[in-house]
Design a protein around this nucleic acid. Sequence first.
DNA 1: CATGAATGAGATTTCATTCAT
DNA 2: AATGAATGAAATCTCATTCAT
Lengths: 207, 207, 207, 207
Amino acid sequence: MNHLSVSRTVSRPKRQRGQRTRQRLLDAAEAAFGRHGYFETSITDITREADVAQGTFYVYFPSKKAIFSELVRERSHDLRRTIQEAVAGFSDRRDVERAGFTSFFDFIRGHPAMYRIVRQAEFVDPNLFRWYYRRFADGYVHGLREAIEAGQIRNLDPEVLAFCLMGIADFLGMRYVLWEKQVPKPAVIDAVMEFMMSGLDGAGRTK
Amino acid sequence: MNHLSVSRTVSRPKRQRGQRTRQRLLDAAEAAFGRHGYFETSITDITREADVAQGTFYVYFPSKKAIFSELVRERSHDLRRTIQEAVAGFSDRRDVERAGFTSFFDFIRGHPAMYRIVRQAEFVDPNLFRWYYRRFADGYVHGLREAIEAGQIRNLDPEVLAFCLMGIADFLGMRYVLWEKQVPKPAVIDAVMEFMMSGLDGAGRTK
Amino acid sequence: MNHLSVSRTVSRPKRQRGQRTRQRLLDAAEAAFGRHGYFETSITDITREADVAQGTFYVYFPSKKAIFSELVRERSHDLRRTIQEAVAGFSDRRDVERAGFTSFFDFIRGHPAMYRIVRQAEFVDPNLFRWYYRRFADGYVHGLREAIEAGQIRNLDPEVLAFCLMGIADFLGMRYVLWEKQVPKPAVIDAVMEFMMSGLDGAGRTK
Amino acid sequence: MNHLSVSRTVSRPKRQRGQRTRQRLLDAAEAAFGRHGYFETSITDITREADVAQGTFYVYFPSKKAIFSELVRERSHDLRRTIQEAVAGFSDRRDVERAGFTSFFDFIRGHPAMYRIVRQAEFVDPNLFRWYYRRFADGYVHGLREAIEAGQIRNLDPEVLAFCLMGIADFLGMRYVLWEKQVPKPAVIDAVMEFMMSGLDGAGRTK
DNA sequence: CATGAATGAGATTTCATTCAT
DNA sequence: AATGAATGAAATCTCATTCAT
């Protein structure tokens, strides 16, 4: 497993022109992969979109897989940072969750390709795929554990909770953002929060 | 010759031998798609696994896409029936959900290929993919609406709830069944139920 | 060269049912070959058109080539007989030619597939192709020689004349019957006769 | 990937090496098509003859059909120019026809593949086929009309005459050049001219 | 006689990657 | 850095023909 090691054959471009070309290729790849998926996208599609010659691709990336992995890692990092920044100011768990969910929906609204890319990752590089969710889950578990210790939410296995919450976010993002092509209306967000927070708080008629 | 899509028609097998061959191909396809994913599986992989000649494939299916769609539809039907039967006896919503989740986990434990197949569907045939989740959601929404009307759970938009619950099931299935290759331990199920049912019941400290 | 020997493996049908099936296949073949040409027509196209099963084809013809040759021979025979009958009553060369040309145009009007079939013959079986034109030319040469000896037309190499006249018929048939899908108007026939007969008679300002 | 025919575009070669390879493929195609006909020639036959790899073919032509059309258009242009140059100096119709016929026979003597290629065109691309003869006929009709107006030949529908003359040339080319593999002897040419010119001049015993 | 299933050789086409300039 | 040409392995698909019933 070496999906975290940086591409062997190809070094980072030193000059500005190179930097730009490399970025153009990454953006083109995101668009192309988002449109037709990894497997139905050819290198030619990417270079055509980036408006460079075929051979240029291999100046920057050693393979199709490599640019894909790079893309997943970059965007994954962007997303996590976006969410972290969004929840930074809040201490109450309800506020944290609402801010987190909202910024997640915003992000995928701006990066609709993201979904398809992550989903394909499973087939391109299973390790990368698990790494992606594991990173997320780890952050989530950490936050939940703190909230539990602070008595903000009840004491349920945070690993289980993390995957529940990620699943909720993922499916709502699919249903409302991807399918309807818009961020969920406040009413939807409210309903989700209602459901989620009761679940986290516990209580209710349950037993 | 292929003038205006006449030759593409593939008639159902008329003899027993044909029936058997067709089924062998479907089973082989499930195994192969599950192993390597749709795009990295070749027709040759399928026919080799089914132990028939290459050409035989095209006697029964006009393309790789066609056998894939057929497979998704068949297995989707199986899964929905399995869950329906599992929840049939229960009227309390908590029992229904527990039975539903459990049978879902059982099913994918027995059909691990299912997950990868459904996930790839998005790229093979987007309509098929949405159809799959829409079918599920419709059933879920229906059941939730009844529970709401019966006062068993609180009044939240059932469409939202359905996708929350489907997301939870999906991600837990991924996390515990696919990754750990076993059905979730009772403790995990208990935690999920705790979380979910409180969410559905409402109440708690929720402001 | 054995293109004139009757199919080896397959015997002529003895019973009426067989006769009918065989004829249905021949007719279907003519239609199919005429529509898309020999190479782009599959056995399946023929059997589908004839409304019999795939395997049935090989009960009557040992190969695709065989049914094609059979067809060429049959239709060629029909055409030659048609023309012979049409010219039978006439003794004046002008009448003979007019009757011959007219019946030729009528024939291909009724068998538009004929043209494409004969033209493909060159690529299916070169011997058959030459045989076809040789047969025609022989008859023509024979008739012309008699006319020369009778002093009806002037003394030019009848082989050359035969191919000139066949060429004229062929190209006019293509231009007027095939392309316009109708037999040439009397005015066209008149012009051809004018041209041809002067050519055969000789005289004029020539030399 | 092939979403909506983007990838089918084949750009003209930009470097000398590419130019040469493209020409090699065209020449190889002519030879191969001439030998076995369009349908029985595979892309592999062409690339083998051109001594390039299979894939190289698709760098220059999107399909077998495409290289065929290109070939027909190129050679058709060559032939028409050859004939035009041959008849350029003459004003008397007899001289024009003799020069035209002779140069036509010479051309196909040097390009025997031409015949088979044109004949197959009907099945490869009917439009191309008709275009080919139409182009020729148009030139012929033009020349004949002028000759009629100049009183050099008699007043018969030039369209009819054009197809008569083309038919004669075609069939004589087939009979003498293709079958005997040599240009027709002077005696044959003389006979043809005798026949043709009388036909064009008119007069004679014609009632 | 007739049929439907099965075959496997061969054709077209795509495409990630390498190479020479 | 960038480019366009070239490659060949592999994939999809077709189809004449054979076979068993």
